[in-house]
Amino acid sequence: MEKQTEPSGVYEVFVQRDHLDPMMHVGSLLAPTNELALQLARENFTRREQILQIWVVPRTHIYSAEEDDFHAREMDRSYREVSGYTENGRLWRMFKEKEITLEEIVRYVEQKKQSKHDLHREESHES
């Protein structure tokens, strides 16, 4: 990485708490060099919590959209969202079944040990 030479440049700080988490922006700080920025980031942001990784990025290296309408939603996008399909629950009930959610599938697949009942028919089904 190139050495930052201007006195006290602004650095944006990112931390990763767990291998399954993305890098998260936590704040910024002033520092004269990359190395000092890293030291300061550790002291300022991670005094207590256990973290895996810190990134410090000179603010001048961050490029972001300037126009306000860059993120504008020009039309209704419910067709690509779960919230656009809320009628599924009602429709399944017409067939005496219930809707299924992704979270439910993930929990079901990840569960370490299954009871007899789970394997046959998911637990919540008959409730």
């Binding site: 067709y79 779960v82 656009g84 399909y85 009628e87 429709l91 399944w92 992704l102 599938i105």
Partner: peptide, 10 residues
Amino acid sequence: ESFHMQHGEN
């Protein structure tokens, strides 16, 4: 994928 699931069911 959670949208894909709901869409397919629908």
